[in-house]
Design a protein around this nucleic acid. Structure first.
Lengths: 395, 395
DNA sequence: CTCTTTTATTGACAGCGTAAATTAATGGCC
DNA sequence: GGCCATTAATTTACGCTGTCAATAAAAGAG
């Protein structure tokens, strides 16, 4: 294990305490009994686990003004005191650093962006350090300390070791980021793949709350996918999982940078859509905004490019649904800016290509800004604050 | 819960006891210390859990003749006494019932097949009853009783309720098979999807032993897939999962009975291969044996049909590997009879289409007869004998 | 004021882990 | 051969954590 600097720690590191706390955290104020039911524990265990957490101020009791049962002893609700502590989440892209300061409930208090001038690990680390310093100063104004930092970036990331094995956008290889950052910032640091981080945020606070099996599909420059199976985020035996972007949907389709043809990403990734528009319309669209404008003006070639993208995504989602049978698929990512252009195709293709009751899977969209990814990073930090040993077997 | 007739039960239904027992069961004779390590428990817990199991005769101690450590106290090996009890596994196809009598170690002692004349649930149930009666008589000859029955069939099966939601080959809907069979046979009965049952057998006794993430892909009349993620067989939120057969690999490909085009099954299923051979060669091949003979004689059209099938399967496996990063993929099923005809295409397509380190996944074949599927059914029965509550969190 | 209903708490007990003690086998040395 | 040090497996004793069942608490209904 990497060294984590000394800091305030969670009062009770027992499985039940972590379990209860994360249940209350993600499922809002709950009565003890309800929390017990949802966490799969006994009521007695909740009473015992809650006591030290109340004492430490992480949980607070609320009088249940409304929704009091008509009969019987009124329940007292327990909820997390968000103001009790802060966390910082960072999301790094190839050109930008997005940082958020969140409270213990992972609500964003401050968000800030910084352009990256250079991809060298030391430079990026310095920029991260500066951003964290600023956000910590803001936290000081709120009066409570920052207890952890989470960093999310795309690529092959070993979360348990805190090492970036390979990051294509930053061109890093085997950078022990958690260790380096922990030394500079004097904070416990978690590092994870960005899509997995977003998936954790959705699992706790978003459209995946309370579900044991769901998928998050992100649409944008790349096409990514986070999977939750049996209540746990899938990391894959080799650290690679959820590569929906490189699922082949059309073996005769356009070539992909991965060496194949017709990958979802080679049809529905931002670059692929731009290329397609240039090919069919001859218009030299420079970026996604122009492409969107063109399509919204009704230019046939542009609309067709988005329609194709929608079909590819729908097929990719159907593949995921056929293989895992998730309860829900959440579509997110910057690419949703053009969602009206391919929503219909996604839905139609999915419905057609999903087999049997896999089609009952609930597909919904969540337009989330990059700040939400950074929030996911903060969520991983909160997660490892609560349970230092990785996998929370939530249900 | 459905009623299970009274029968001999497992001595200690504690988590640790089940854990240890299944570890010893699947990983052969082990020293207590080694068993503890593999099950993730303490040595003390093993000693305590083993005692009542030894007393009840389910486990026996063996002198460790060889492999004795050079120095120090020699270990005593613990193993399951296969002869202590028997189980019966049944696999139902549309035309046949395959039954096996296994010992407690899930080794097949007797195998028997019966043709099905009718698909009516009562008729099939009667045939099952007769087959079970015969196998029980054989078990009586061995001197120990049959403690459970497992039934495996293709389709949408709810294992926890023991209900067959939909079986295409038998044309059943919502048949409470476990309850019906338990009444007739006076045995605890488990019912599960056939591919999942085979996956359990592989997880415990086959090429998946000791792995936390792997996939079983079955090739034959249909193309199926069993997934093990985080050490547990994936059942899917709606009871459907592993539908690799209906993953699209070529949207312009031949139509599939599911309503789409270019599903893996529509290219690599037995019927699809036959149809393709008829189309390209004009030869009216009647069954798989003839198709194989034709291909082995070097007829180009037949060889091409198998090559196409191999590509489709390879692409399907690559999709599974890209999405959840298994340590291993096990290819099995009757279709392996023609494996030499498409092995190369499977391997090539997989290697090409697998993204990044997903390609490190170990793909291997296991030619297993239908009896092995029935054995899988017996394995599910043994599983629920050991842990009445479903999911064993093995590692 | 008592009964009913629902939630929260308490105390006895069981399962499992840790750590120290015990047991078993072996080689070296006299 | 007898004795002792060495090594490792196993067991015993004890503490922590969670469950179960009984009990207290807080209302409203009659």
């Amino acid at each position: 294990m990497r060294p984590t600097p000394p800091a305030e720690t969670f009062p009770a590191h027992t499985p039940a305490a972590s379990q209860i706390f994360s249940t209350v955290l993600s499922q809002g104020p709950l009565t003890r009994l309800e929390a017990a039911r949802r966490a799969g524990l006994s009521a007695a265990a909740v009473t015992k686990a809650v006591r030290p957490l109340l004492a430490a101020g992480y949980l607070v009791e609320t009088a249940d003004d409304e929704a009091r049962p008509a009969l019987g002893r009124p329940a007292s609700l327990v909820r997390v005191d968000g103001g009790r502590a802060h966390f910082i989440g960072l999301k790094a892209t190839g050109s930008e650093l997005i940082g958020v300061l969140t409270d213990l409930c992972c609500r964003i208090r401050v968000a800030r962006r910084v352009a990256l001038t250079d991809r060298q690990d030391t430079t990026v680390l310095a920029a991260m350090g500066e951003l964290v310093r600023q956000l910590r100063a803001e936290a000081a104004d709120f009066g409570t300390p920052v207890l952890g930092l989470g960093v999310a970036l795309s690529g092959d990331v070993d979360r348990t070791e805190g090492v970036v094995r390979y990051s294509p956008f930053l061109d890093w290889r085997d950078v022990p980021l958690a260790e380096l950052a922990a030394k500079v910032m004097e904070l416990p640091v978690t590092v994870d793949n960005d899509v997995r981080a977003l998936t954790v945020a959705e699992q706790w606070f978003g459209a995946g709350a309370g579900l044991s099996d769901f998928a998050v599909v992100t649409v944008g420059a790349g096409i990514g996918c986070g999977l939750v199976v049996h209540g746990r985020v899938v990391a894959g035996a080799h650290g690679v999982a959820g590569e929906i972007g490189h699922v082949t949907v059309d073996p005769t389709g356009p070539p992909c940078h991965c060496g194949n043809r017709g990958c979802v990403e080679a049809i529905a990734g931002d670059a692929a859509i731009l290329r397609r528009i240039r090919e069919t319309t001859g218009v030299e669209v420079a970026d996604t905004a122009e492409a969107l404008a063109l399509a919204h003006r009704g230019v046939a070639g542009a609309r067709e490019a988005y329609a194709r993208a929608g079909e590819a995504i729908g097929r990719g989602i159907a593949t995921v649904a056929n293989l895992f049978g998730p309860q829900r698929v959440i579509i997110s990512g910057e690419g949703l800016a053009g969602y009206d252009l391919f929503a219909e195709q996604i839905r139609d293709t999915f419905t057609r290509a999903a087999f049997g009751s896999a089609a009952h899977c609930d597909v919904r969209t969540r337009p989330l800004p990059f700040e939400e990814w950074a929030r996911g990073a903060a969520a991983t930090a909160i997660q490892s604050f609560i349970t230092p040993d990785d996998p929370p077997p939530s249900r």
